[in-house]
């Protein structure tokens, strides 16, 4: 792919497209802040963790095993196993990232999250070549996450939402909805099924990590590549 551009129009379009994601993820951010408070961290700790780690699922896994003094190695390991999936996502955006200078390239990768990535890949597949869309999607998600998690921390003592309140389904619903634009046709059915089933089986063995996501995704990719190699 050549002629990657960065326009203000795509930046604004990305920010606009990010709004429903910000709304959908807010309950998740809120819960993350709430749980951070329950584990005895301070407001400063909470904002620092959400701003710098910025990966809710890994934070929840780390907090579930939190101790005082804090478990440095265990927390780092939780971040590694839950966030390993990001290592697979970056290379898919390579054609777009080539249009940025190295500092901007790695700065935007530092804000990489699943949803902005999925919408960017969808646009890239349609022939989009404006990397500003990815940046425009990423920035509001970070700010929205900071606001939601900080609110969650501040409301923690006043509020008592049960952990399985239907509102929290919003975070999973965002992932489910993003499957729709990623669907390219029947050729995707078998790789997706293999990915899903492999992940379910691996999750039995390795719960509370993202190894099952990585393993399932790789199994699906291999299935897809083998299918294409045989048919073409």
């Amino acid at each position: 792919m050549t002629n990657i551009v960065f326009t203000g129009a795509a930046l604004r379009r990305g920010m606009w497209q990010a709004m429903p994601l910000v709304a959908g993820l807010s309950p998740f951010g809120f819960v993350t802040g709430l749980i951070t408070q329950r584990h005895g961290l301070t407001l400063g700790d909470c904002m620092l963790m959400n701003g710098l780690v910025y990966a809710g699922a890994s934070q929840l896994v780390a907090l579930a095993n939190w101790t005082h003094p804090a478990p440095v190695l265990a927390a780092a390991f939780a971040a590694l196993v839950v966030n390993m999936r990001f290592a697979l996502m970056g290379p898919v955006l390579a054609p777009w990232l080539a249009g940025l200078r190295p500092v901007a390239r790695y700065a935007s990768l530092a804000l990489l999250v699943d949803h902005a990535w999925a919408l960017s890949v969808t646009d890239m597949r349609k022939g989009g070549r404006d990397v500003a869309l990815f940046v425009g999607l990423s920035l509001p998600l970070w700010f929205g996450w900071m606001i939601a998690s900080t609110m969650g921390f501040l409301c923690a003592s006043a509020l008592n939402l049960p952990p399985h309140h239907p509102l929290f389904f919003g975070a999973l619903a965002a992932f489910i909805a993003l499957l729709v634009p990623l669907w390219r046709g029947l050729g995707d059915a078998l790789p997706w099924a293999v990915a899903g089933v492999t992940a379910v089986l691996l999750a039995q063995v390795l719960p509370h990590t993202s190894w099952y996501i990585v393993g399932g995704a790789l199994a699906g990719c291999v299935t897809g590549a083998v299918m294409e190699t045989r048919h073409v």
Partner: peptide, 13 residues
């Protein structure tokens, strides 16, 4: 194939 597969692997479990 990664984008769809990674979300399928996340959602189903």
């Amino acid at each position: 194939h990664l984008p769809g597969c990674i979300f399928a692997a996340y959602v189903l479990p």
